[in-house]
Design a protein around this nucleic acid. Structure first.
Length: 739
DNA sequence: AGCACGCCGACT
DNA sequence: GTCGGCGTGCTC
C-alpha cells in the first residue's frame, strides 16, 4: 500500500533515547514501511535501522533513506508496538529494544556496509572477491587475522564472509526460498486442527477446572490474565500442555515462557510426551545464531505452533497467537538486569493485551503484585490446592543450624534414612564456592576483590579466589598477603563446602553438584538433571537452579542448608524471596508416593516467611507480608523506579550528586504523589571499578512515577557536560530489588 | 555506542 | 611542524 507520507521514523542501532527522522525518496515510497529494515546515513557512517512509522512532516533536517533491505516486514505491528511500549515504559533507548524483535544481529552486515558502501544483497561472490582483493592488496599482511582486524571483523567472521555464508543468507527473500525447499523434504506432518490430540494423563478436577476457565478466552481471542496459583506438584505443566493443545486445535499458536532455558526444555519434553503430533519449538538466546534464525523463520511462517523459551522468547514472531503462558511468574530472573530492563512477565501481559489473547501466569508462590491483582479482580484467580494423585505435601521441619557443621544432626539423619531406603536427597544453598570469605586470623585482613567492594569467594577445586560479581580471580593464598601469617580463616559456606562435607559424611553416596561452576558448558545442566532423573545420583547439591520447577520423583529429602542469608538482605522483597525459595525447594520433595521430608536450617524459625513455608500456607504469608508492604508503602501499594548513578571515581559521582541536589528537591516538590529516597551509596558501593549510588522514586501510580522520573532526567540533561557526562544514570522501572 | 573534532604534550 | 593521547558532544 503506497503512502505519500514523505518522512519515516527510524530506530537507529545506537543507545540514543529517541527516534531519527529520515526523508523517503520518491523511488522508495512504496517500499518504506513499518517493520522493515533500511540502510540509513548516520553521521559519517551507514547503519541499518528499523522503520517505525511514516510521518507527514519533520521538524529536524533530514537525510534520505538509502535503501530498503527487506521485501516484506520482518517485524509485525504488534511486536513493534510491544517494543515501543518497552522503550517508553522502561526508559530504554529504542535502539536497545529493537534487537529483541529483529531476526538476528546485523552487526556483521553493518561492517560490510562500511566496507562496500552498500547492503550486499545476494552478492556472495562479489563481496567475497572484494575482501579477497583487499587481502591481496595488503602485501605485507598476508595473515587473515591482520586484515580482519583492519576491517573490523573477528577472524572467525572474516572466514565466514569469505565463505559467502553470511551474504547468501542475509535477505529474507533468499532465505524463505531455502527454507521452503527444506521443509518440502522434511516430511514433517503438518498439524491440522481436526486431528485429535492424544491425552494420556487423567486430569484432577482442579486441573480440569483450570483448563475450562481459560479455554473460552483462547477460543474467543479475549485478553484476560489468569493467575494459576497451584501448590508444588499440583500439575501445572499438564494444564499448560492441555491449553496449548486446545490452542493448536483451533489453528492458533501458543507461547510458553519459563524463567530458565533448562526449565523451558523440560516443559518442552513434557509437552511432547503429553501431546502427540504437536511439534514443540524451543526458542531462546542460548541457541547458536544460525539455529535461532532457522527457528525464528519457522515461527514466522506459522509452522511452529507451540514455542517454549526463556525471557527473550517473548518476542518470537508468533503467527496467529492464541495464548501466552508465563510459568513461575514470580521468578526474579524474568527481570532483565541490563538495558532494556524489562520484566518478561509484565511485557507478556502487555503482549497479550496488544494481540487480544489470554495470558496465564503460573506459580506455587505468586509474586505479591500478581496475587494482589488477582484479589482485586484485575486478574482471574485459579487455585489448585492439592497435589496430583492426592499426594501429601512434604513435612517441613525447622531446625537451628549446628555450630560445628553445615549439615546438622537432623538433616544428617534424614539423609541417612533416605539413602537407606534408596531414595534421593537434594540440598539447597544459595551460594557457590567453598568459603564466602577468607580472613587472616592474626591481622584480620579480609581478601577483597580489587575491582569491587566484595569479599572474594574461595573455590576449592580450582584452588582460587573468585569475585562472583566481576569474575576477577586469583590463586588461593597460602599466607596472608598483609602480614604473612599462615593462619587463614575460611568463613561462610557454599555449595562446594557442602559437597565436601557430604562426601565425608556419606562416602558411599553418589553426589553431584549443580551450580554455575558445574553448568557452564552447553548441555551440562541437562546431563546432571537426567542423571538425577535416572537415579544415578543419590544426593544433589546446588544453588537455586535446582529448586526451579523440576520434577524428580525420586527425591524424598530436601535440605535448605541456610535460610538466613536471603532473609537479611537489605531489601523490601527479602521476606518474599525467602518464602519463595523455601517453598520451591520444599516442593521438590515427595513427588512420588512417599511423603517427603524437608529440613530447613535457620536462626529465624519464627519469621513469618519461614513459618508460612513450613505450613504450606501461602495465604497467611500473603496476608502478613501485604500488611507490611502497605505500612511501608512498598509495591503493590506503590510503584518504584530505581535510579542508579555510576562514576569511575568517587569525586565525579559526588560532584554530580551535589549539582543535582536542587533538581531532586524541585522534582520532589513539583511532582505530586512522589517520594524520593536517597541518593545513598549502593549496598555494594564499588562494582567493576565503578562507584555506585542509588535513588528510589516511589509513587502511588505509574503516571506520577513517570512524571517524576521524566522531570529528573530532563534536569540531568540540563546539567553542564563535564558534570553529567562523567556519570552514568540508569533508570530501572519496577526494579527486582532496591540494592 | 562510534566517531570526529580539538586541544595538549612528545616526537621525526 | 605533526602524530596521537583522550575528553567532549553529536548522530535525523
Amino acid at each position: 500500500m503506497p503512502s505519500s507520507l514523505p518522512f519515516a521514523q527510524v530506530i537507529a542501532p545506537r543507545p540514543v533515547r529517541s527516534f531519527f527522522t529520515y526523508s523517503v525518496p520518491p523511488s522508495l515510497d512504496t517500499e518504506v514501511s513499518p517493520g522493515k529494515r533500511v540502510l540509513i546515513p548516520f553521521g559519517s557512517r551507514k547503519l541499518i535501522g528499523l522503520v517505525v512509522s511514516r510521518i507527514k512532516s519533520s521538524d529536524v533536517k533530514t537525510k534520505p533513506i538509502l535503501q530498503v533491505i527487506d521485501p516484506a516486514p520482518v517485524v509485525g505491528l504488534h511486536l513493534l508496538e510491544l517494543a515501543l511500549w518497552i522503550a517508553q515504559y522502561y526508559f530504554a533507548p529504542p535502539g536497545d529494544v529493537a534487537p529483541l524483535i529483529l531476526p538476528r544481529d546485523d552487526a556483521v552486515i553493518e561492517n560490510l556496509v562500511q566496507l562496500t558502501g552498500e547492503i550486499p544483497v545476494n552478492t556472495r561472490s562479489k563481496t567475497a572477491r572484494l575482501v579477497f582483493d583487499a587481502l591481496k592488496a595488503k602485501k605485507g599482511a598476508r595473515k587473515l587475522n591482520l586484515l580482519a582486524a583492519d576491517l573490523g571483523f573477528t577472524p572467525v567472521k572474516m572466514k565466514k564472509i569469505l565463505a559467502g555464508d553470511l551474504i547468501r543468507r542475509f535477505t529474507r527473500q533468499g532465505e524463505s526460498v531455502r527454507l521452503k525447499k527444506k521443509h518440502a523434504t522434511d516430511k514433517r506432518e503438518d498439524v491440522n486442527g481436526k486431528k485429535p490430540v492424544r491425552l494420556r494423563i487423567k486430569l484432577t478436577s482442579q486441573q480440569k477446572k483450570a483448563v475450562t476457565a481459560i479455554t473460552p478466552d483462547i477460543e474467543k481471542g479475549r485478553f484476560r490474565v489468569h493467575l494459576i496459583h497451584g501448590v508444588t506438584g499440583s500439575g501445572k505443566t499438564e494444564i499448560y500442555a492441555r491449553l496449548a493443545a486446545k490452542t493448536v486445535a483451533i489453528g492458533k499458536s501458543a507461547l510458553i515462557l519459563a524463567p530458565e532455558i533448562a526449565l523451558g526444555e523440560m516443559i518442552a519434553r513434557k509437552f511432547e510426551e503429553s501431546l502427540e503430533n504437536v511439534p514443540v519449538t524451543v526458542f531462546h538466546s542460548g541457541l547458536k545464531p544460525a539455529e535461532r534464525y532457522k527457528r525464528w523463520a519457522q515461527i514466522m511462517e506459522g509452522e511452529a505452533k507451540v514455542v517454549v523459551g526463556a525471557r527473550s522468547a517473548l518476542f518470537a514472531p508468533m503467527k496467529n497467537l492464541g495464548l501466552i503462558i508465563v510459568d513461575e511468574e514470580h521468578d526474579p530472573t524474568y527481570k532483565q538486569e541490563e538495558s532494556p530492563r524489562y520484566h518478561g512477565r509484565d511485557a507478556a501481559v502487555k503482549r497479550g493485551s496488544l494481540e487480544k489473547v489470554p495470558v496465564a501466569l503460573g506459580s506455587a508462590t505468586p509474586s505479591l503484585e500478581s496475587y494482589s491483582n488477582a484479589k482485586e479482580g484485575k486478574y482471574r484467580l485459579i487455585e489448585l490446592t492439592s497435589r496430583i494423585d492426592d499426594r501429601p505435601m512434604p513435612q517441613v521441619e525447622i531446625v537451628e543450624p549446628d555450630s560445628g557443621s553445615d549439615i546438622g544432626p537432623k538433616l544428617r539423619d534424614a539423609i541417612q534414612a533416605c539413602l537407606k531406603s534408596k531414595e534421593q536427597a537434594l540440598l539447597f544453598l544459595n551460594r557457590r564456592g567453598a568459603a564466602r570469605f577468607i580472613q587472616c586470623s592474626r591481622c584480620g585482613h579480609v581478601f577483597i576483590c580489587r575491582n569491587c567492594s566484595l569479599s572474594l569467594i574461595l573455590h576449592a577445586h580450582s584452588r582460587s579466589l573468585k569475585c562472583h560479581t566481576c569474575g576477577y580471580h586469583e590463586r588461593a593464598p597460602d599466607v596472608c598477603c598483609e602480614c604473612g601469617s599462615e593462619s587463614l580463616f575460611k568463613g561462610g559456606s557454599g555449595t562446594q563446602k557442602i559437597e565436601q562435607e557430604i562426601t565425608e559424611l556419606f562416602p558411599k553416596a553418589r553426589v553431584a553438584r549443580m551450580d554455575r561452576d558445574t553448568t557452564t558448558k552447553r548441555g551440562s545442566s541437562a546431563t546432571i538433571l537426567s542423571a538425577v532423573e535416572s537415579r544415578s545420583i543419590d544426593i544433589l547439591i546446588g544453588t537455586q537452579m535446582i529448586t526451579k520447577g523440576h520434577d524428580f520423583p525420586g527425591i524424598n529429602v530436601v535440605g535448605v542448608v541456610s535460610a538466613d542469608e536471603l532473609l537479611y538482605l537489605p531489601d523490601f522483597r527479602s521476606a518474599e524471596r525467602t518464602f519463595q525459595q523455601i517453598t520451591q525447594a520444599a516442593g521438590r520433595a515427595g513427588r512420588a508416593e512417599r511423603k517427603g521430608i524437608v529440613i530447613v536450617q535457620t536462626l529465624s524459625g519464627d519469621h513469618h516467611s519461614v513459618t508460612s513455608a513450613k505450613n504450606h500456607d501461602y495465604r497467611r504469608f500473603y496476608k502478613t507480608e501485604i500488611d507490611l508492604r502497605r505500612a511501608a508503602g512498598y509495591p503493590p501499594f506503590s510503584r518504584l523506579a530505581r535510579i542508579g548513578i555510576e562514576a569511575s571515581t568517587v569525586e565525579r559521582g559526588e560532584l554530580f550528586l551535589e549539582k543535582i541536589e536542587p533538581a531532586i528537591k524541585i522534582t520532589a516538590q513539583s511532582a505530586p504523589g512522589i517520594t524520593i529516597l536517597g541518593p545513598v551509596e549502593a549496598v555494594v558501593f564499588k562494582v567493576r571499578n565503578r562507584y555506585r549510588w542509588r535513588m528510589l522514586f516511589k509513587a502511588v501510580g505509574v503516571k506520577a512515577l513517570f512524571k517524576g522520573v521524566r522531570s529528573f532526567i530532563d534536569k540531568v540533561d540540563m546539567l553542564p557536560g563535564p558534570v553529567k557526562n562523567r556519570v552514568k544514570v540508569v533508570v530501572d522501572v519496577d526494579p527486582a530489588d532496591v540494592m
